[in-house]
C-alpha cells in the first residue's frame, strides 16, 4: 500500500475523534467570537480534560496558552489553535522514534510485550511479527501468556496465519521456562526477531510483577543483553491510570517503548500527551484496527491533527 493511503487511512479512522474536539474548539473560538476571556480558557481546559490529557497537563497547557495569548496577541481561533498545536507537538515530538531492527544486533533481537489485562498484547505481538516479516526478517513468537485460557491458542492461530513459528507449552507452564525455550530455539534457528507475549497483569500485583522480572533473568542466562526491547502496550481508552501503569512497569522491568492500541475508537488517547510529558519514552506504534496491517508508526503531526483539527 502506498504511504499516502496509509496516512489517509489513519486520518479517516481518527476523524471521529478529531471532529468532536475540533467542533468543541471551533464553538469556542468561532468567527466573531474573538473574545478570549477566562470562561473561554476554562472551557478549553475542560475540553483537554475530556480528551484524557488529565488535570495536570491540561492546566499547564492552558496556562501556557494564556501567557502566549497576552504576549503575542492571540485573538482568533486560528491563532490559538496554532499555538495549541505547537505546544502539543513540542510535548509529543521527542516520543516519535521508529522501532528499527538494529542491523548489528546480536541475534535474535528479543522484544518482550508487557501490559495490564485486555490492552491487546497478543494482537499487537502478532501485528509486530507481521511488521517485521514484511522487512524480510526471520521472526518467531513465544507464547508466554500461560495463564489466560486459550491465550496460547490465540497466538498459535496468528502464527499460522502469518507463517511465523510459535514456541509454546501447555497452559499453566512456567512462563519463564517457555521464554527460555523460545530463546533457545530462536538461537538455534538463527531467528532475527523473537517476540515474547506475556500474560496481562495488574501493575500493583507485586507477585506477578516479580514473575516478569524472573522471566527476564531466565532469558538473560542465554543472552545477557536480552530483552533488547520491552514494549508496554497501553489501551487508548485508558484514563489517568495509564500513568501509573507506565510508572510501575518501567520501575520493575525497564520499559523501552510504548504501543498504543484501539485508537480507532472515540477515545481521544489524550493520555499519550501526559505520558510523553512525564516519561519521555518512545511511542513506537499505534493500533488502529483488528487486522494485522492496522499497526502504524506513531506520527505526532497526524495525532495532533486528529486531536484538534487541521487549523493552524
Amino acid at each position: 500500500m502506498p504511504e499516502s493511503d496509509e496516512t489517509r487511512g489513519l486520518f479517516a479512522r481518527l476523524k471521529k475523534t478529531r471532529e468532536s474536539l475540533a467542533a468543541n474548539l471551533s464553538g469556542l473560538f468561532g468567527p466573531g467570537s474573538a473574545v478570549l476571556d477566562d470562561a473561554a480558557f476554562e472551557d478549553l481546559g475542560d475540553q483537554l480534560i475530556l480528551a484524557d490529557l488529565g488535570v495536570e497537563v491540561s492546566t499547564q497547557i492552558v496556562a501556557t496558552l494564556r501567557r502566549q495569548a497576552v504576549s503575542t496577541r492571540v485573538e482568533t481561533k486560528e491563532q490559538l489553535n496554532s499555538v495549541l498545536r505547537m505546544k502539543l507537538l513540542e510535548i509529543l515530538q521527542p516520543s516519535v522514534r521508529p522501532l528499527d531492527f538494529p542491523a548489528a544486533s546480536a541475534k535474535p533481537w528479543v522484544v518482550v510485550m508487557v501490559g495490564v489485562n485486555g490492552v491487546g498484547k497478543t494482537t499487537t505481538a502478532a501485528k509486530l511479527a507481521h511488521w517485521f516479516t514484511q522487512q524480510d526478517l526471520k521472526v518467531m513468537l513465544g507464547a508466554c501468556d500461560t495463564y489466560r485460557a486459550a491465550a496460547i491458542e490465540q497466538l498459535q492461530v496468528w502464527g499460522q496465519r502469518l507463517a511465523v513459528p510459535v514456541i509454546a507449552q501447555q497452559r499453566g507452564a512456567d512462563a519463564a521456562a517457555v521464554a527460555h525455550d523460545a530463546l533457545n530455539s530462536a538461537q538455534a534457528r538463527s531467528v532475527d526477531v523473537l517476540i515474547i507475549d506475556s500474560a496481562g497483569r495488574q501493575h500493583v500485583n507485586t507477585e506477578l510483577m516479580e514473575q516478569l522480572r524472573k522471566m527476564n533473568r531466565v532469558i538473560q542466562r542465554l543472552d545477557g543483553s536480552a530483552p533488547h526491547e520491552t514494549l508496554l502496550v497501553v489501551d487508548a481508552a485508558t484514563g489517568q491510570n495509564a500513568l501509573a501503569q507506565v510508572g510501575a512497569f518501567a520501575a520493575s522491568v525497564g520499559v523501552t517503548g510504548l504501543c498504543v492500541t484501539k485508537l480507532d475508537g472515540t477515545a481521544r488517547g489524550g493520555v499519550l500527551v501526559a505520558l510523553a510529558q512525564k516519561f519521555q519514552l518512545p511511542i513506537y506504534f499505534v493500533g488502529v484496527g483488528e487486522s494485522v496491517n492496522d499497526l502504524r508508526p506513531f506520527d505526532a503531526e497526524a495525532f495532533v491533527t486528529a486531536l484538534i483539527g487541521e487549523g493552524g
Binding site: 480534560i49 475530556l50 480528551a51 484524557d52 495490564v116 485486555g118 489501551d235 481508552a237 485508558t238 484514563g239 489517568q240 491510570n241 495509564a242 475508537g265 472515540t266 477515545a267 481521544r268 489524550g270 493520555v271
Partner: peptide, 9 residues
Amino acid sequence: ADSMSGQDA
C-alpha cells in the same frame, strides 16, 4: 466496562 477507562467510558 474496564475500570481503568477514561473520559470516553
